[in-house]
């Protein structure tokens, strides 16, 4: 090809228009799965953020609870109080729709915080391992390898168990959510570290990094200014998939009774509560939280799957 100037003469476009025209945005617009999944995620996230405004009842305010409303089936009026609940009520007369909104809030808060924390730890350690190499790399990656041998959920349980042993009983419920976040994050950082290290090792040997070193740029500017932006796309994919995993992990831990306490129920806690009533016919107490959880996890997974294809990084 000849070295012509044609390409540089095209009319300048705004960044937004450029993005809209990019292959990435194009493949998004042409993937019904991605569009629907992101719509679901947006709706659920908005519902969680604005839960206090949307929810018809505050399920944690004992003043609004009427035990007489217990076990009201969805959509039908209660036999005693004649009140109607969209998704029914649980044993204590709490509106299931409202508890789901609040539960979603906790599930998303824990999931997003855990992934962010894992991402920060993993990205920094991964970059350091790749850039400096030597014994630092060996140390970080050995720890990662050993931890990877232990399934994330088990690591999270152990951390939770240890934290429970350390914290005084009166603070346990209060701390539970934060312990949960830290437990999930510490069990998940390895994924980020490995992917970032792998991608950064490739980038590190590219000539633009040599060029920056030649100018005399220091290690940290090179790592964060040059390498980091170039390894973000696999990180984004991992973060999305990790979010789904973190939400599921939170639900699992809460279901097992080692996560969010009944005073601050997440979707997993709600399912744990609902399980007890499934066999006696009050299916809605379990069914609707379970559907919400599945919708959330599935949409995030679908988005992650689509992102992986769209960004097409070499991922394990």
């Amino acid at each position: 090809m000849t070295d012509t100037m044609e390409t540089t003469k095209s009319a300048p476009k705004s960044r937004l228009a450029k993005f809209w025209d990019s292959d990435f945005a194009w493949s998004f617009r042409h993937s019904p799965v991605a569009v629907i999944a992101s719509l679901v995620v947006v709706v659920l996230v908005l519902a969680a953020i604005f839960a206090p405004l949307i929810a018809p009842y505050n399920p944690f305010d004992p003043a609004t609870l009427n035990l007489m409303n217990g076990f009201t089936p969805p959509g039908t009026p209660n036999a005693f109080t004649q009140e109607t609940f969209l998704l029914g009520t649980d044993d204590q007369g709490r509106d299931v729709f409202s508890t789901i909104l609040y539960g979603l809030r906790i599930s998303l808060f824990v999931g997003v915080s855990a992934v962010l924390l894992a991402l920060i730890i993993g990205v920094i350690l991964g970059l350091i391992a790749a850039y400096f190499g030597g014994w630092i790399e060996t140390l970080i990656m050995r720890i990662a390898d050993v931890q990877l041998t232990f399934p994330a959920i088990l690591v999270a349980m152990l951390i939770f168990g240890i934290a429970k042993g350390i914290t005084p009983p009166e603070y346990r419920d209060e701390m539970a959510i934060y312990v949960l976040i830290i437990a999930i994050a510490l069990s998940d950082w390895v994924q980020f570290a490995r992917v970032v290290r792998g991608a950064a090792l490739v980038e590190k040997n590219k000539e633009y990094v040599q060029a920056a070193r030649l100018i005399g740029r220091g290690s940290f500017p090179i790592m964060f200014r040059h390498i980091l932006p170039n390894v973000l796309s696999p990180v984004l994919v991992i973060a999305t998939i990790s979010l789904a995993l973190a939400i599921i992990a939170e639900a699992t831990l809460s279901f097992l009774g080692v996560g969010a306490p009944p005073t601050q129920p997440s979707l997993g806690t709600l399912i744990r509560i609902g399980q007890g009533f499934l066999f006696s016919g009050e299916w809605w107490i379990l069914f609707f939280p379970a559907c919400t959880l599945l919708a959330l996890a599935l949409s995030v997974n679908l988005l992650g799957d689509w992102l992986r294809d769209a960004l097409n990084p070499k991922l394990r």
């Binding site: 590219k206 000539e207 633009y208 040599q210 060029a211 920056a212 030649l214 100018i215 005399g216 740029r217 040059h226 932006p229 170039n230």
Partner: peptide, 29 residues
Amino acid sequence: IQMIFQDPYSSLNPRMRVDEIVAEPIRHH
């Protein structure tokens, strides 16, 4: 001293704008 590298596809940071790339040595020094 300065260097010109072999592979023009990898010697420029794909996430930096061209003016930032050219300005980086001036800024650094």
